Amino acid sequence: MPIKIPDTLPAFDALVNEGVRVMTETAAIRQDIRPLQIGLLNLMPNKIKTELQMARLLGASPLQIELSLVRIGNHKPKNTPEDHLYAFYETWETAKHRKFDGFIITGTPVETIPFEDVSYWQEMQDILEWTQTNVHSTMNVCWGAMAALYHFHGVPKHQLTEKAFGVYGQKILKPSSPYLNGFSDDFAIPVSRWAQVQAADVAACPELTLLAHSDEKGVCIAEDPRYHRLYVLDHLEYDSTSLADEYFRDIKADVPIKLPFNYFPSDDTTQAPQNRWRSHAHLLLSNWINEMYQTTPFDMSLIGKTGQQADVHQRFESAPAAE
């Protein structure tokens, strides 16, 4: 099934040109199923690019997905036009009355700032608490993962003396995890952050399971299986050129930056980087969606309720047909 997004969203045409199936509202209501409701709290500065990256991965699912774009209410981004935000996003204050099968919280480049000093930290804490009652499964990415690990488990982030920047190999620590189904024994993933989460801090929390880790750059993927929370510290969603864009942006702005590790062929910035993580990005999102589908209640009012059970026999195809 395709992903349902507004047909005027800039990502719509880009996805169609890439061969990703998307659908309009008219086509969606004809199908006799309940789509998975997934929200994207987009904290990234370039929201339009992040929308495309996430929609591309979600749209590869065989299930029908309805994507809702959500933003922090009291923070105005500098790199996204306001008319785009007003046209396609709802604030969390508006969205918080809804239930979601899945909710993605992205990163944002504030990892050098203590959590409590981030201008919207109180609202971020409110959102994290809200996910416990209104969301069945969450995926927290980069700073979003650091924030959730700190809020829910007291896991600290450790500042780095230089930016972790490049494509780093990761070790699979729990190959039996449904989130890692189909993964290679090891895999590479883009890393771009000024802080890390250390494996020892995750291991000290019995409720957490470490799934993938880099000896050089710390935790990559962890989960809290009790609440269907997935923590992804790095950027499988990145495009082939995302690290190059960051590198040349900083060079142009005269910001000190090292060449991204293991990225440009022969470290030659005139050569196009090869994407070695795309298949694992699709695997991770597909596995997350499948696990969500298998466990989320058909009746969305049950999401967040203690002792909720998904009716695996009824499933989503039992929704009444639209008139």
Rank of each mutant, 00 (worst) to 15 (best):
T8R: 14
T8K: 15
L9C: 04
L9S: 08
P10Q: 10
A11H: 15
A11M: 13
A11S: 13
F12R: 11
D13Y: 14
A14D: 11
V16K: 15
N17G: 00
N17V: 05
G19A: 08
V20S: 12
V20C: 13
R21Q: 14
R21E: 00
T24E: 09
E25C: 01
E25S: 07
T26C: 01
T26H: 09
A27F: 02
I29Q: 14
R30S: 07
Q31T: 07
Q31M: 05
I33D: 03
I33A: 02
I33C: 07
R34T: 07
P35G: 03
P35A: 02
P35V: 05
Q37R: 14
Q37H: 14
Q37F: 04
I38F: 11
I38T: 00
G39K: 01
G39A: 06
L40M: 05
L40I: 04
L40C: 05
L40S: 03
L41K: 06
N42A: 04
L43C: 10
L43Q: 04
P45G: 03
P45Q: 09
N46C: 00
N46T: 13
I48W: 05
I48Y: 07
K49C: 05
T50G: 03
E51Q: 14
E51G: 02
Q53A: 13
Q53L: 10
Q53N: 10
M54E: 02
A55Q: 12
R56I: 04
L57P: 05
L57W: 13
L58N: 05
L58G: 04
A60Q: 15
S61N: 06
P62A: 03
L63D: 00
Q64C: 06
I65S: 08
S68K: 11
S68C: 02
V70L: 09
V70D: 02
R71A: 08
I72E: 01
I72S: 06
I72H: 10
I72W: 05
I72F: 09
G73P: 06
G73L: 10
H75C: 03
K76E: 13
K76I: 14
K76C: 07
P77L: 09
K78I: 06
N79P: 01
T80A: 00
T80K: 10
P81G: 06
P81L: 04
D83C: 09
D83F: 15
H84N: 12
L85D: 11
L85Y: 04
A87F: 06
A87P: 10
F88E: 04
E90I: 12
T91I: 03
T91R: 03
W92N: 06
W92K: 01
W92H: 13
T94W: 00
A95H: 02
K96W: 05
K96L: 02
K96I: 07
K99E: 00
F100I: 02
D101Y: 01
D101T: 01
